[in-house]
Amino acid sequence: MNNQNLNGAPKILVFSTEKISDPAIDLAGLLKVHYPSTVYTINVPCSSAVKTKWILHAFEKGFDGVFIAADGTDCPYGESCSKLTGEIVSVTHERMKEQNIDPARLKMAAICSVCAEAFAKHVKSFTEYLSKEKNTN
């Protein structure tokens, strides 16, 4: 694992979306649904706007994992969002393999505006996975 944060809990960068998944992450806070404090969010208008370049930059700078909290079928911008976001993940996975980065360090799941519990569950299990990976490396 290159340039990975080896101290403490794994750091996860979440790309959330302003209208759909970010409200769910806010809702998790409102409901006091706890998740690791090493999960950081940058929000964008739509999950299909996330550039491979940004994801690779996050790994290069030391993030252990990147999670795309996608709009899924709820995307206000159109039905093609799910397909395009899926393609971004596929392309990025290939680039990660080329750079010897475990593709499992990039995850994507559809998080709707009320999916507070689902979001917390995803980032907790992702944290557990990344912790195990860190300990075995």
Partner: peptide, 23 residues
């Protein structure tokens, strides 16, 4: 929406407020 950003092979498109340098 920014759907055009990641598909550009030359990285020739930015979204105002979400430029490469900002992100």
């Amino acid at each position: 929406c920014g759907m055009c950003l990641p598909v550009c092979p030359e990285n020739a498109i930015d979204l105002i407020g979400f430029s490469d340098v900002e992100i």
